[in-house]
Design a protein around this nucleic acid. Sequence first.
DNA 1: TAGAGTAGGTTTCATGAGCGAACTGACTGC
DNA 2: GCAGTCAGTTCGCTCATGAAACCTACTCTA
Lengths: 159, 159
Amino acid sequence: MERKSFSDMSCSVAQCLEVVGEWWSMLIIRDAFMGVTRFDDFQRRLGISRNILQHRLVSLVDAGVLQKVAYSERPLRHEYRLTEKGIDLWPVLTAMRQWGDRHAAPDGPPVEVVHKDCGQAAVGRLVCEHCGRPMGARSVRAVPGPGYRAGRTPLEAVH
Amino acid sequence: MERKSFSDMSCSVAQCLEVVGEWWSMLIIRDAFMGVTRFDDFQRRLGISRNILQHRLVSLVDAGVLQKVAYSERPLRHEYRLTEKGIDLWPVLTAMRQWGDRHAAPDGPPVEVVHKDCGQAAVGRLVCEHCGRPMGARSVRAVPGPGYRAGRTPLEAVH
DNA sequence: TAGAGTAGGTTTCATGAGCGAACTGACTGC
DNA sequence: GCAGTCAGTTCGCTCATGAAACCTACTCTA
């Protein structure tokens, strides 16, 4: 059976997963953030099969997350670079990394992130854009937005 | 061939994906945040096959993200609730939702989140825990952390 | 006391996605 | 002319995914 698509779900989480929810996709994006751009470099670093890598790169390019740019004419060679849409995935990647650091890294984080502004190896925290106070699962509630379509009932968040 | 596991990668993103990277897992967790706890409710809301749902619930319970709690003895009935480890996935979910809202919701967000502290339908923003200033892909650089193991070379973030 | 309904699964089986490995084609450098 | 690099493509296998049917244990209604 074909893998079911999330694209007709009226939910932004599902739309995001439709683009980056495939096995390997987020790791390709992670490596792209680390500066990897070439097919063989992705393949070597990830240990992914070449055909799967090819599929993923094509679908990420189709989704507008990566762009394929020629860096040599003869021979014709391309590299894959994050678009702005791809760079906007940074908070997703960061949230995943921080969750992994906290719950699946007994020896401490394998990679730390230094904030250039203050020079500290720091953790990102989610705050409300409006009031600047912390925004956690228990401090919000979900309501239907302008793009809401029937069939999906937002409930109270976490009880 | 068996789907390759990410568990031996020295990377917290990979560890996170190992737990929630399967097709459907994040949507199950999203619904759990919306207050869904029962097998049949998950099944109906997601339109997922019952066997796949069963697999996912078992692996999320095994991973410690959900817990199975009896809410009735006769007949024996269980419900699935987020653990603290599961609730810690909120930033991941929020980042995905916000990315989807921005890049895949032409009619506006299907669901908005109201911050109880200020009453506004607000967006979460990632700031440095240390200095409080915004933390984006371009304002950080990756360095090896205490849990670093060879074979993985952190590079500069985004060029 | 029979029959319908509900909750939470389990089984079955066809399909297709993911896998490694080998191969291809276009080029460069020696 | 031969080795090496880069970016794929092809091949054949296996396992995960999917829908639908089935199962178990209990409750509710008549």
